[in-house]
């Protein structure tokens, strides 16, 4: 899942919740919308879970620029 789609998914998820709460959809459309909502919420959660913390610094070496782990002073 791309990041720009994360924002859109979150927005869509909100719209789905609102739409379902209004309760004006047909039975079939309601179920379909609900399924989409669950799928989106799962994707969004996964995206956040999967991200990993990484702090690197660019260092000039004889092979050119390289990334090194940046030591954080707590």
């Amino acid at each position: 899942m791309k990041n720009e789609t994360f924002e859109k998914s979150l927005e869509e998820l909100e719209n789905i919740a609102n739409e379902l709460e209004r309760g004006n959809l047909s039975l079939e459309k309601s179920i379909e919308t609900f399924e989409k909502g669950i799928k989106l919420s799962k994707e969004c959660s996964e995206k956040l879970d999967k991200a990993e913390k990484r702090i690197n610094i660019l260092v000039q070496t004889e092979n050119g620029l390289e990334e090194e782990n940046f030591i954080v002073n707590e």
Partner: peptide
């Protein structure tokens, strides 16, 4: 879970 790249 930030991903930072520092250019000194």
């Amino acid at each position: 879970k930030m991903d930072l790249l520092i250019y000194p």
